[in-house]
């Protein structure tokens, strides 16, 4: 079972309290009517599907109910960090230096 730290509740809790919400930092187009089919395809469907450190969204469904972002290694399933939605994307280097 994954143990996940909710950055809002500031508690580390079991995976069953959370739902996964896909890749993080995918920005919705500012002006949807000006977007081409290729850009819609990329926004809606295409994913990096990273083997390694993955930026992703989670929701504390059975807790505060809020979405947040995480960096998790998809080979070991170990979380490097979690952070509030809207916060800038942390660099992998800054996370691995701390020995996490």
């Amino acid at each position: 079972m994954l143990l996940i730290h909710c950055p809002y509740c500031d508690e580390t809790l079991p995976e069953v309290e959370f739902t996964y919400a896909g890749e993080a930092h995918i920005v919705r187009p500012e002006n949807p009517s000006a977007v081409t089919d290729e850009e819609w395809e990329s926004f809606l469907f295409l994913r990096d599907n990273v083997k390694g450190n993955h930026y992703e969204r989670w929701r504390h469904f059975h807790g505060c109910g809020r979405y947040f972002n995480a960096v998790r290694n998809t080979i070991t399933d170990k979380f490097l960090t979690t952070y509030e939605a809207g916060a800038p994307r942390p660099s992998i280097e800054s996370l691995t230096e701390k020995g996490k």
């Binding site: 079972m1 994954l2 079991p14 995976e15 069953v16 739902t19 996964y20 890749e23 599907n49 990273v50 083997k51 993955h54 992703e56 998790r72 998809t74 080979i75 070991t76 399933d77």
Partner: peptide
């Protein structure tokens, strides 16, 4: 399992 992962294990829940 609900999350992207390449570990050929999965979670116990």
């Amino acid at each position: 399992d609900q999350y992207v992962s390449y570990s050929q294990r999965g979670g116990l829940p």
